[in-house]
Design a protein around this nucleic acid. Structure first.
Lengths: 355, 355
DNA sequence: TCGATTGGCGCAAACGATTGGGCAGCTGTG
DNA sequence: CACAGCTGCCCAATCGTTTGCGCCAATCGA
């Protein structure tokens, strides 16, 4: 990086770090000249000084370890190179992976991201959104949209802040999602092919389009095949391990014929379900088939490898950011849908004993 | 939140959002008065206007949905209320959990956090640090410190930026960590108590104090017990699932007597190891004991519940932020060490077949 | 009635960077 | 030699907010 800051320079800021004026003074030019010299690398060289002046300024800036105050620059230019990201929780690996995609793409385009958890809570969503706006973000990626009436989205529209939804869609707003309906159908067809006629669904949160669409696709396939789902075997749940555990318990407690297969709309919840089944003395893959959703990296490595629907999480993030970048430049924003695929493993195929 | 922005107001910013001047004009006062009225809630009411003026200004601000431009404010006050956080990767649940603790505590004290991944890569660490400094953060939490020579830390010291390490320690720098040495000893004592004499260690990255300390504690107990570790059974690894898988494969390939137990310094790597064992036809908990580290929420829910050393991740985050806050106020910073504990489960205790 | 005190606000200068406009000094041409 | 055109840089305004200083009017005491 750079040499330590010296203490005997002109125009240092209060933290003792060099400012543009420091560089300019040392180079014997006006701050405006220094500004142009340092930013001409970014913009096509219009109105930039002579080659040796530019060279000298750049060298001095580097020697000083100067880095421009992005807030001051943003104040002047009205652009912060900041994109806000709102997610339910970063400890949810699914969202963390999407976020990494978002951030990666943002950096490739000179943007930085500011991320915050909302815990799917309305009050938190509102306050975190306000926080992002107070930080003057140039645009927002929303990872926690609600399917129906979403106040936050309306706020953003009213304030004309460019935004894009990711993972979850909401009405006609621009979004990048995985085709959850198709994914639900994939899961259903897989279980159906294996001969499962009576199946349960651990259905996730009912305000999330992901959960709803996956269930819808799944239910449609079973209905079309002449085996409509039993309503008591479709139970909502949280998306985490504990949620899956509870929902699975509820299914096991249901009277009537036990299901031979379970579709869990989220891998973490599926792991919770596996835990419950184990506690109940059932072996997944033999006594009951279990298929999850998202195909997180753990799924294939579990002591009992979990069948799952793979969705391109990282790509969803990068695509979402790309769409937002387009939107911030005033382009039309058209939603994008990525394709899921099936990853069949022991939890549905049965247990293969290796040699 | 607030009403939509009107278009016919004075002094809107370029994005059409109201500024302090908008509020002031509508309230018929000078911007400085408005500033004082709106910030007196924060600071003990010195030099603040009459009660009804303040009231009127606050009401108008709320009606307009005014929120102050934090960058402009920071420019003036030289304090951004921003803390930077550097972590190896947010998709590592361990770091994500620590980060949540950090962020939570920060918000309680009116700070926001700006987080970035460094992938434990020196170049990325440098550029992300520069980025945080360009954003004028008031302090930094480093979650990716190197045990030995750490350039980033020296930079921060030279620039007099308050910082604190979390999870990993480095020399004498202020840090909040879990007592990894003690944790390593716990794991060793557990395996020793169960009768394992020949054990392997999947030892993690050798630049991280967490990995080194855990191994050291583990090795010490075995040495003291008269069963020093076989060097070929101690293999470094990445911290993720794939890293554990590879390291475990290497251990299985080792000539000589096979170990009866494995200590993996990280739960994700432990899950990878479980995958390898399963592929090799070995059943963890019966053929070989496996114990991980961190006790992530999944560990207890796995089809084969994983024994692990629990470390208070969330608390480490909050404590780290507390320490940083103290440091930012100029207080002395003294490192803190939290205590780990043992969570023994089937992967070491053996498989209990439920009724 | 008048001077001293004080409460309530306004004024203007910052903070650090950017940028349109403009002013020198140079070269080239007729 | 005069003038146009160009190059290379500076000037000053500006972004939105904060804050030391000081003004004005109201209140009080004598």
């Amino acid at each position: 990086m750079s040499k330590p800051v010296r203490d005997d320079l002109p125009h240092l800021d209060k933290a003792g770090r060099p400012t543009l004026a420091t560089v300019a003074t040392l180079a014997g030019v006006h701050p405006s000249t220094a500004s142009r010299a340092l930013s001409s690398s970014l913009k096509g060289g219009v109105r930039v000084g002579s080659a040796d002046t530019v060279e000298r300024i750049r060298r001095i800036a580097k020697e000083l370890g100067f880095s421009r105050n992005l807030h001051a620059a943003g104040l002047r230019t009205q652009r912060t190179s900041l994109a806000g990201v709102l997610v339910p929780r970063l400890t949810d690996l699914v969202l963390a992976t999407i976020y990494e995609g978002i951030d990666e793409e943002a950096r490739h385009h000179g943007y930085q991201t500011f991320v915050a958890n909302t815990n799917d809570d309305e009050a938190e969503r509102a306050s975190k959104t306000d926080m992002l706006l107070a930080r003057q973000v140039d645009g927002i990626v929303l990872g926690d949209a609600r399917i129906d009436h979403d106040e936050i989205i309306e706020q953003l529209q009213a304030r004309r802040v460019p935004f894009v939804l990711v993972s979850r869609r909401s009405q006609h707003h621009p979004s990048v999602t995985c085709d959850d309906y198709a994914g639900g159908r994939l899961a259903a067809q897989h279980l159906l092919d294996l001969g499962h006629r009576r199946v349960a669904v651990i259905a996730g949160e009912q305000y999330a389009s992901t959960a709803l669409d996956r269930l819808q696709g799944f239910a449609d396939v079973y209905r079309e095949a002449g085996h409509p789902l039993a309503p008591e075997l479709v139970v909502p749940s949280r998306f985490d391990v504990a949620g899956g555990r509870r929902a699975c318990q509820q299914i096991l407690n249901t009277s009537g014929a036990a299901p031979t297969g379970v579709f869990v709309v989220n891998d973490f919840a599926a792991i919770g379900a596996l835990g419950t089944l184990r506690s109940a003395g059932l072996t997944a893959g033999r006594d009951i088939a279990v298929i999850g959703y998202n195909d997180i990296s753990l799924a294939s490595e579990l002591p009992l490898p979990l069948s799952s629907i793979r969705s391109p999480l990282h790509d969803m993030g990068t695509e979402a950011m790309r769409l937002l970048l387009a939107g911030m430049e005033g382009a039309e924003m058209t939603s994008k849908t990525l394709k899921p695929s099936l990853a069949a493993r022991e939890s549905t195929l049965g247990i293969s004993t290796p040699a």
